[in-house]
Nucleic acid binder design. Structure first.
Lengths: 191, 191
DNA sequence: AAGTTCGGCAAACGACTGTTTACTGAATGG
DNA sequence: CCATTCAGTAAACAGTCGTTTGCCGAACTT
């Protein structure tokens, strides 16, 4: 049922999804839906949770191995690219419903992105570049990184519908932007 | 009719909007809708165009007056804050449909954001800090600024539902992030 | 003054909707 | 082996939906 929903949400909104539609796609009777979810919103938050597993893994794999700033940037962008390619449906779902019409789903996504920012902030604190940074500044930087990741992933999503050149251009731009941010980071004097 | 649609889209998706719903809200008969639009998607792109007027004005008012980096940042964030407060519905609409389920609307928004980035890039080129910057680097920076603006506006949108403290925190974070970017910009050596 | 466009209406069409109900077979557990 | 839970079904309910049609008055145009 989750798969059926995700498949339908490829070119549709959660708010415009119908119970019958989902069950039809899943090859079940309409009533069967209510055996598993009370709401379509509930199916939505279930999909959010499903999408998170893969996202968390991704973040870890960027932060795990150390290395110079340049390699770290390259690896981050590579991982994002691969993630969008391999989990296209999940990423599209998150991008679409992050500001979508279903409040509970929106809040679930937002809370989780906040947790990501916290995780990134903790990892940043361990890097030598961050010596002397206040808690607040670290959080600010982490949010900047997460927002940038989200923007890049969204752009890739729109591009990857069969346009590899545009995809490469987006990745290149993302790398430059990360380099600029990392430059600002090195010269930061505290707020 | 546009107003009615915009009002309904406050807690709904364009894809889940109904013709009858709109006309009911507008106090008209269902058939009246087709006198003005062939589609609901058409109403969507009309709303996009409506939302753009105010956005363009906003961008100009940030770029117009010169000034030091700090003042420019403060003014930019102030303008965003005010814009979200005063054009809440339009901003919400753009954020929601930017990755929404209606392709034509999505494309219209994307094209317009691209035009904004170009406009910002042209303005950046005039600033003394940008001496020696390549066209590509300027575009990259402009996109970074635009994406950051969009992220900030979205965050403010979610917050402003009656939580002024959170709103102030978001604005403060945005200012710090812009300062960090502007720092990276000053030390940029070209790609 | 005549003709034409414009924006509106009511009514009707069949198709689709969410949800509840009562029922069924299979697996599970004591 | 009996009871219970689980995951499914068909059928029915009253609504809502998008869209078309034919009609109407007002406002322009000539």
């Amino acid at each position: 049922m989750l798969d059926a929903g995700l498949h339908l949400l490829a070119d549709q909104n959660l708010a415009s999804l119908g119970v019958r539609e989902v069950t039809r796609e899943a090859g079940l009777s309409p009533a069967a839906f209510y055996r598993h979810f009370p709401d379509l919103a509930a199916l939505g938050v279930a999909l959010v949770e499903e999408s998170l597993a893969s996202l968390h893994v991704m973040i870890r794999s960027v932060l795990a191995e150390a290395g110079g700033a340049e390699e770290l940037i390259d690896r981050a962008v590579d991982v994002i690219e691969r993630h969008v390619r391999e989990h296209r449906s999940h990423v599209r779902f998150l991008a679409r419903e992050r500001h979508g019409g279903v409040r509970r789903v929106r809040e679930a996504i937002d809370a989780e992105l906040g947790r990501f920012a916290a995780e990134v902030g903790a990892a940043l604190a361990l890097q030598p570049v961050s010596r002397g940074w206040s808690e607040q500044d670290l959080r600010m930087l982490a949010e900047l990184y997460v927002d940038h990741m989200v923007s890049t992933a969204s752009a890739l999503l729109e591009a990857q519908e069969g346009d590899p050149a545009r995809e490469r251009r987006i990745a290149a731009t993302a790398r430059l932007q990360l380099r600029l941010i990392s430059l600002g980071r090195r010269h930061w004097q505290g707020s």
